[in-house]
Design a binder for these strands. Structure first.
Length: 414
RNA sequence: GCGAGUGUAGCUCAGUUGGUUAGAGCGCCUGACUGUGACUCAGGAGGUCGCCGGUUCGAUCCCGGUCACUCGCCCCA
């Protein structure tokens, strides 16, 4: 087939796919609003350093997955690979430090140069929640509870588990990181190739290695909780207490490590087993150092991102679009009357379908295919009486209705 | 970036141990029904068998490359 194809890793969203996406988006937007998170948007591309500085030069995303290009005056810009950095940049650019807690919902396309798989594309879409300027554990609890509420509404919460961990504050995390590097450095010859690479890039990742040799070493590795300072320990306890209070179940997962440098304290993922190796549907955490890394005043923050494609694959009970009413003119004379009626009804807010051509049989078939609720037939007979034949397509019954009573008949459909 | 699998009609898939006109179901179009859908019946359109090259008298089938998708690794939403 030499037909034009979309670029690898990108996909068209035909109306049916789009409806699923829209449902995820709309559900998230509605529930976010209940929690006090207003919708906003930032540009689809930013100066490259916005991402490089915040996500970490050594992270996979920054080191090999960004779509970067040069502007005309030579600055490097990048199609956003995630939303958090852009929103934090916006927070600083707009001087919003007086508006804290700054609670927002956002959604849109993201771009990462990765090997496509099911539930993983080069252009994909995320819903995103950020709560900037709140250092309290209550914010963590709220943000996680919001994620759970959205999953519940989408009908996927039951097939997900909430994985939870703490990375401690920067001090704790750095101390633990150093301890791990020191420990694993003694076993350089035994570590797998992957883990050897991780040793300097992201040693915490080694803990999650699937290599059996690595796992044996991990068994005796330093334990995170020994390196958490009092503040970090208490903070995490408070988060757990909050979740318990709300009846939100979770699993502690000490190996849950985020790939991006900016995370501190709470790290979490809602994970499903129904999507192959792409298990995370919502993932996020606290990023207390991020705003500072971007050049803003030290400001704490917490948030998460959810994959719309992944959620759309799992979501149940996608609502159908509004069911139209089909107007079917019979004969040239009725055509004009029907056209006018269709327009009037549409202006009144009623969804109306009227085919451009075809005999009655064809138009009825089309009405059926479009899932029309009713058909309004207008022919010469009806014209004389200023009426129409009103057919209920679900019941298969019909009756003649004066045009003056048409609105009443329509609102009786239920 | 690494390893493996798949690629036949709009969709889901048969098939050919390499041989002349490549099939089914669904969908689409036309008609039976010149004013009635969802049911029935009868016809019809639609394929350079992903693309390029090689082997062969001959390739949709074998081989190589390439592209896309799927699965695993890496990583992530």
């Amino acid at each position: 087939m030499s037909l034009p194809q979309p670029v690898r890793g990108t996909h068209d969203l035909l109306p049916e796919d789009f409806r699923r996406h829209a449902h995820v988006r709309n559900t998230a937007r509605d529930i976010a609003a209940r929690f006090g998170y207003a919708e906003m948007a930032t540009p689809i591309f930013e100066f490259t350093e916005v991402f490089a500085r915040t996500m970490g030069e050594t992270s996979d995303v920054v080191s090999k997955e960004m779509y970067s290009f040069e502007g005309r005056s030579g600055e490097s810009m990048t199609l956003r690979p995630e939303y958090t950095a852009g929103i934090c940049r916006s927070f600083i650019s707009n001087g919003l430090q007086q508006n804290v807690p700054f609670k927002v919902f956002a959604n849109g396309p993201m771009f990462r140069y990765e090997r496509p798989q099911k539930g993983r594309q080069r252009q994909f879409h995320q819903i995103d929640i950020e709560c900037i300027g709140a250092a309290e554990a209550k914010a963590d609890v709220e943000v996680i509870a919001l994620g759970a509420a959205i999953l519940k509404e989408l009908g996927v919460l039951d097939s997900c588990s909430l994985q939870l961990n703490t990375l401690g504050d920067r001090e704790s995390r750095q101390a633990y990181r150093d301890a791990l590097v020191e420990y694993f450095s003694d076993f350089k010859d035994k570590l797998s190739e992957d883990s050897l690479a991780r040793l300097h890039r992201n040693p915490l990742r080694i803990l999650d290695s699937k290599d059996k040799g690595d796992q044996a070493l991990v068994a005796n590795a330093p334990i995170f909780t020994d390196y958490l300072n009092d503040y970090s320990t208490e903070f995490f306890a408070e988060v757990l207490e909050g979740l318990d209070m709300l009846g939100i179940g979770y699993e502690l997962n000490r190996r849950l490590v985020r790939g991006l440098d900016y995370y501190t304290h709470t790290a979490f993922e809602f994970v499903t087993t129904e999507l192959g190796s792409q298990g995370a549907v919502i993932a996020g955490g606290r990023y207390d150092g991020l705003i500072e890394a971007l050049g803003g005043k030290p400001t704490p923050g917490i948030g998460w991102a959810g994959g719309i494609e992944r959620l759309a694959l799992l979501a149940r009970d996608i609502p159908e679009g509004p069911r139209p009413v089909a107007i079917v003119p019979v004969g040239a004379e009725a055509e004009a009357v029907a056209l006018k009626l269709a327009h009037e009804l549409r202006l009144e807010g009623i969804s109306v379908e009227m085919a451009f051509k075809g005999n009655v049989g064809k138009r009825m078939k089309r009405a059926n295919k479009l899932n029309a609720r009713a058909a309004i037939l207008i022919g010469e007979d009806e014209l004389v009486r200023n009426a129409c034949t009103f057919r209920d397509l679900d019941q298969g019954t019909q009756e003649e209705v004066p045009l003056s009573s048409l609105r009443a008949a329509l609102s009786n459909l239920g």
